[in-house]
Deep mutational scan, measured.
Amino acid sequence: GQVHVGDTTYHFPNPEEARKFAEKAAKENNLQVTQHGNTFKVE
């Protein structure tokens, strides 16, 4: 799974890890998570 936060892309071998990371980043920054397959975008 990939997580895009601003201009930075994080790669995770496990989509579940990617999702947890995205949700945590979104919560900390008052942002939203959008999911496209195994790619998550925090914005």
Rank of each mutant, 00 (worst) to 15 (best):
N30F: 08
V3K: 00
E28V: 09
G6I: 05
R19E: 06
P15W: 14
F21L: 00
V42Q: 03
A18D: 01
N30L: 06
F12V: 01
T9S: 06
N29Y: 14
H36K: 10
Q32G: 08
E28P: 06
A22V: 02
F21V: 01
N14H: 06
F12L: 02
T39G: 06
E16M: 06
P13Q: 12
L31E: 05
L31Q: 09
D7V: 07
G1R: 02
K41Y: 15
A22S: 02
E16V: 05
V33N: 01
A22P: 00
P15C: 13
V42I: 10
F40Q: 03
E28G: 06
V5K: 04
V42S: 02
T34Q: 07
E43H: 14
Q32F: 13
P13A: 13
D7N: 14
Y10M: 05
E23S: 05
H11K: 07
E28Q: 09
G6H: 09
F12M: 00
V33L: 08
F40W: 11
N30E: 06
E23A: 06
N14F: 05
V33W: 10
V3Q: 00
V5D: 04
H36F: 13
P15K: 13
E16N: 06
G1Q: 05
A26S: 05
E16Y: 07
A22G: 01
R19W: 07
V3E: 01
E16P: 00
A26K: 01
H11G: 05
G37Y: 05
D7G: 14
N38T: 10
Q2P: 01
Q2R: 12
K24I: 11
H11I: 11
L31A: 13
A18L: 00
Q35A: 08
T8G: 05
G6W: 10
V42M: 04
K24R: 11
T8W: 11
K24W: 14
G6S: 05
G1N: 09
A18V: 00
V33T: 03
N38E: 05
N38F: 07
E28A: 11
F12P: 00
P13I: 11
F12I: 01
R19I: 05
L31F: 08
T8M: 14
F40L: 05
F21D: 03
F21T: 01
D7A: 11
A26V: 02
F21P: 00
N29V: 06
T39Q: 10
T39A: 11
E17D: 12
Q2G: 04
L31Y: 09
K20E: 13
K27Y: 11
G1K: 03
K20L: 13
H4Q: 14
P13N: 13
A18M: 00
E17F: 03
F40V: 07
K20R: 12
T34E: 05
A22L: 02
E23W: 08
T9E: 07
F21W: 09
F21A: 04
N30A: 08
A22F: 01
G6R: 06
E28D: 12
T39H: 13
E17M: 08
V42A: 03
G37I: 04
H11W: 15
P13R: 10
T9R: 07
T9W: 14
A22D: 01
G6N: 10
D7W: 09
T34W: 08
V42N: 03
F12R: 00
T34A: 06
E17G: 04
Q32R: 14
E28N: 08
G6P: 01
H11T: 10
R19L: 10
A25P: 00
K24E: 12
P13F: 07
F12C: 12
Y10F: 11
H4G: 03
K41N: 12
E23Y: 13
N14C: 07
K20H: 10
K27N: 09
V42D: 03
F21K: 00
A25D: 03
V33C: 07
T34D: 04
G37T: 02
T9A: 06
G6A: 07
Y10K: 03
A25N: 07
G37A: 05
N38S: 09
T9P: 03
N30Q: 09
N29D: 08
V33K: 00
A25M: 15
Q32W: 10
R19S: 05
T9L: 12
V5H: 07
K41F: 15
G6C: 08
K41G: 04
G37V: 03
K24T: 11
Q35R: 11
E28F: 08
T34H: 09
Q32M: 13
K41M: 14
A18N: 00
F40H: 04
K41P: 03
E17I: 06
R19V: 04
T8V: 14
D7H: 12
H36S: 11
K41T: 15
N29R: 11
V3M: 01
F40D: 03
Q32H: 12
T9I: 15
Q35F: 06
T39P: 02
F12G: 02
K27G: 08
Q32P: 06
E23C: 08
V33H: 02
P15T: 14
F12W: 02
N29Q: 13
Q35S: 07
E43D: 11
N38G: 06
E43C: 10
Y10T: 03
A26W: 02
L31I: 04
A22K: 00
R19C: 10
N30M: 08
V5T: 04
Q32K: 14
P13K: 11
V5E: 02
G37H: 05
N14Q: 04
D7I: 07
Y10H: 06
V5R: 03
H4F: 13
V33Y: 09
Y10W: 08
H4M: 14
G37L: 05
N29L: 15
N29I: 06
L31R: 05
E17A: 10
N14A: 04
V5I: 15
H11C: 12
K24G: 08
K20N: 10
E28S: 07
A18W: 00
A22H: 01
E16I: 05
V3A: 04
R19Y: 08
G37R: 03
E23F: 11
E43Q: 11
K20I: 13
K27V: 09
A25Y: 15
K41V: 15
V33R: 00
H36R: 06
P13D: 14
L31D: 05
K27P: 00
G1Y: 15
Q2Y: 15
H4N: 08
A18H: 00
R19D: 03
P15Q: 14
H11E: 07
N29M: 15
N38Y: 07
P13L: 11
A26Y: 02
E16S: 06
A18I: 00
A18R: 00
Q2H: 13
G37D: 06
Q32D: 06
D7R: 09
R19P: 02
T9H: 09
H36W: 12
E43L: 10
H36Y: 13
Q35H: 07
K24Y: 11
N38H: 08
N14E: 05
E16A: 06
G37E: 08
G6L: 09
K41S: 11
E23T: 07
D7S: 13
P15F: 15
K24V: 10
V5G: 01
N14K: 04
E23V: 09
A25Q: 12
T9N: 04
Q32N: 10
L31N: 05
F12Y: 03
H11L: 12
V42L: 13
E28Y: 08
A26P: 01
E28L: 11
H36V: 14
N38M: 05
V3D: 00
D7E: 12
T39Y: 10
P13H: 10
V5W: 15
N30Y: 06
T8S: 11
P13W: 08
D7F: 09
D7C: 09
T39F: 10
Q2D: 07
E17T: 06
N29G: 13
E43M: 10
R19A: 07
Y10D: 00
Q32A: 11
D7K: 12
L31H: 06
V3W: 01
H36I: 14
F21G: 01
V5N: 03
N29K: 12
H11A: 06
V3F: 02
H4W: 13
T9M: 11
H11R: 06
H11D: 09
N38D: 09
F21C: 03
N30T: 05
T9K: 08
T8A: 12
Q35G: 05
D7P: 09
K41A: 08
T8I: 14
V3R: 00
G1A: 15
E17W: 04
V3N: 00
T8Y: 13
G6D: 06
K41H: 15
Q35M: 08
A25T: 15
Y10L: 06
G1I: 11
P15I: 15
A25H: 15
P13T: 12
E23D: 10
E23N: 08
H11Y: 15
N38I: 05
E16D: 11
A22E: 02
A26H: 02
P13Y: 08
T39L: 13
F21R: 00
H36A: 09
G1T: 10
N38Q: 06
T9G: 02
Q2S: 13
T8K: 15
V5L: 14
V5S: 04
H36D: 13
E28W: 07
T34N: 07
F12E: 02
E43A: 12
N14L: 04
E28K: 10
E23I: 10
